[in-house]
Design a protein around this nucleic acid. Structure first.
Length: 304
DNA sequence: TCGCAGGTAGAAC
DNA sequence: GTTCTACCTGCG
C-alpha cells in the first residue's frame, strides 16, 4: 500500500530526531512495533519512488494504519510550500537540495520521546539511541523481534543503578546487577528520568500538554527534571508536533550565527528567540533542515 | 591515559 | 538577569 506524499524515508529515519531511535532497518525497509489505541501493530515501511510503501500486522483497519503513518512521518505537511518559503530567503535557499524530502519523524509515544530527549542532552546520537534501545529490550513488551517502550507506571519502578539493585534484590554479586537504568549507559540522567516519570504519574497529565498553547507547554516542560530549553523544544516538536518550536543547541547556534549574524557569537537563548520570530510556524522544519544542511554541505566541519 | 564533546542544575556573580 | 562549573560516557 502506498501513501502518495513525497518523503525520503532513510534520511528521515536516520536524521537523529529525538522522538525515538530509528526503526529496524533491513536494506530499504524499516520496521517497528507501534501501539495504536493500545493495540500492538507491527509496521513495515519502505521507499517506493518518492513515496512510502507500507504493510502492517495487527488488529486495526487500513484506514487507522494510514492515519498513524501519516502522523509519524508528518505526511500531511506541505513540503512544496515549505520549499517555496526557503527559496524566497537567501540564507535558506540552498537547504532543500541537501535534504530533499526530509520530514519530521514524530513520536507515536510521547513518553518515549520525553525520556529519549532527556537522554539526548549532552550526549551523542549514537549513545542516546543505544540507551533507549537497551531500555526497550530490558523492560518493554516483546512482539516478534520488536519491543515497545515501557509505560510510565512501570518506569518509576526501575532501579537507578547497580547499588540500588544490589541492596534491594540481595543479589550475590554487585557486578551481576545489570537490570537498572545506569546499565543502559544513561549516566547521571538516570535520576532525571525517574523523577520525570514520577511527575507524569503523579502530577502532570501528558494529554494536557497537547491541548496547551506552545508557550504554556514550554513553561510546563521546563519543570520536568533534566529538561531545559533545548530538550523542552525537542519534546514539543518531535513528541507533540508543535512546529513553532526551534530547538537550539550549540550547532544551531553556530549555523544561525554564521548565516544571519556574520559569525558573531550569540547566546543559545537569543538564537532560540531569533528562530521563533524569524521562522514562525516553519521554525521546527527550519531547525531540522539547518542541521542537516550544515552536516551534508560541509558547513559543519567549517564551523568547528 | 587523557582530553574532548554535549545541555542541565545549581550556585555564584 | 547572565555566567560558571560539575555531571557520565564513549570516542579518538
Amino acid at each position: 500500500m502506498i501513501i502518495e506524499s513525497p518523503i525520503n524515508l532513510e534520511l528521515t529515519q536516520l536524521s537523529g530526531q529525538t522522538s525515538q531511535p530509528p526503526w529496524k532497518q533491513l536494506d530499504n525497509s524499516f520496521s517497528e512495533v507501534v501501539l495504536v489505541d493500545d493495540k500492538p501493530v507491527i509496521f513495515n515501511v519502505e521507499q517506493s519512488d518518492n513515496y512510502l510503501n507500507f504493510s502492517f500486522k495487527g488488529d486495526i483497519s487500513k484506514k487507522e494504519a494510514i492515519s498513524k503513518l501519516k502522523y509519524i512521518y508528518d505526511l500531511d505537511f506541505d513540503l512544496n510550500k515549505f520549499y517555496k518559503y526557503l527559496s524566497n530567503h537567501d540564507e535558506l535557499k540552498e537547504m532543500s537540495e541537501f535534504c530533499s524530502n526530509l520530514r519530521l519523524f514524530l513520536a507515536p509515544n510521547p513518553f518515549e520521546c520525553i525520556i529519549s530527549s532527556i537522554c539526548s542532552a549532552n550526549n551523542s546520537i549514537k549513545r542516546w539511541t543505544k540507551s533507549i534501545n537497551d531500555i526497550k529490550s530490558k523492560w518493554g513488551n516483546k512482539y516478534g523481534e520488536f519491543y515497545t517502550f515501557p509505560d510510565i507506571q512501570s518506569f518509576n519502578t526501575f532501579f537507578l543503578d547497580e547499588n540500588e539493585e544490589f541492596e534491594s534484590t540481595g543479589a550475590s554479586d554487585i557486578s551481576s546487577c545489570k537490570n537498572n537504568l545506569k546499565a543502559c549507559g544513561v549516566g547521571y540522567r538516570a535520576p532525571y528520568m525517574r523523577k520525570a516519570s514520577d511527575l507524569f504519574t503523579l502530577e502532570m497529565d501528558l494529554s494536557e500538554i497537547s491541548k496547551m498553547k506552545y508557550d504554556e507547554a514550554f513553561e510546563t516542560m521546563l519543570n520536568v527534571p533534566g529538561v531545559g530549553p533545548k530538550v523542552a523544544d525537542c519534546i514539543l516538536l518531535y513528541g507533540f508536533n508543535f512546529k513553532e518550536a526551534f530547538p537550539s543547541d550549540v550547532w544551531i547556534k553556530r549555523i544561525v550565527s554564521y548565516l544571519y549574524f556574520d559569525g558573531k557569537d550569540i547566546s543559545v537563548s537569543k538564537v532560540r528567540e531569533f528562530g521563533m520570530d524569524e521562522f514562525g510556524s516553519f521554525a521546527g522544519y527550519v531547525q531540522l533542515y539547518l542541521f542537516h544542511y550544515a552536516r551534508m554541505s560541509g558547513l559543519m566541519s567549517k564551523l568547528k
